[in-house]
Design a protein around this nucleic acid. Sequence first.
DNA 1: ATAAACTAGTTTATTATATAAACTATATTT
DNA 2: AAATATAGTTTATATAATAAACTAGTTTAT
Lengths: 96, 96
Amino acid sequence: MFQELDPLLHQQLRLQIITLLMSVESAEFNFVLAETKATRGNISVQIKKLEAANYIEVKKSFRDNYPLTTYAITEKGKLAFEKYVETLEAYINKAR
Amino acid sequence: MFQELDPLLHQQLRLQIITLLMSVESAEFNFVLAETKATRGNISVQIKKLEAANYIEVKKSFRDNYPLTTYAITEKGKLAFEKYVETLEAYINKAR
DNA sequence: ATAAACTAGTTTATTATATAAACTATATTT
DNA sequence: AAATATAGTTTATATAATAAACTAGTTTAT
């Protein structure tokens, strides 16, 4: 039987964002923008979903007069990512 | 930079179906139904998408008077799955 | 023999989701 | 003081996933 793949993580852009956040202390909006090549709107929407689930934390400030938004993964987010990877690996192992 | 995840495979039910088909010569509709626990309608729709992409082959016949539909993965489907797994692994490795 | 229930699906309609386009608010440059 | 740029957010549209309803027939019970 197949375990369910966390629908929040099983989406390309959200998975990319979480992947990025797993490897850094925190990331700025523009970093996410550059790394994912997604549109600003799409990033904004998907970030909101990850935040609503408490998978990430959002901090808003200013730098050189411009708004600066940074993101960090939470403990819950890390656990969810690890669980997601395990589930996926179970799928892939079945195929072999 | 992130590579794109084949949208046809990056969906739970279709991934489950392909995973199943990777490990068997062929599978019957009811086998897929039992293994995935999805609804018949959903299976039918997702199978059609995989078939349209030539990721799987569909054979229709009869057994004990009832319609019998069997599915098998194609070479193209196998390659797509392997590519998908590689891409995913690249994501996951980034997170570490 | 006929109605009720079951098999094995398919099609259609509804809901949810992803994405892009348009917008906001402020700052900088010409 | 316009025009352009920054850093986003909100809203509208397109796409996709899912469930419900339907099809075409078979088996079983009456």
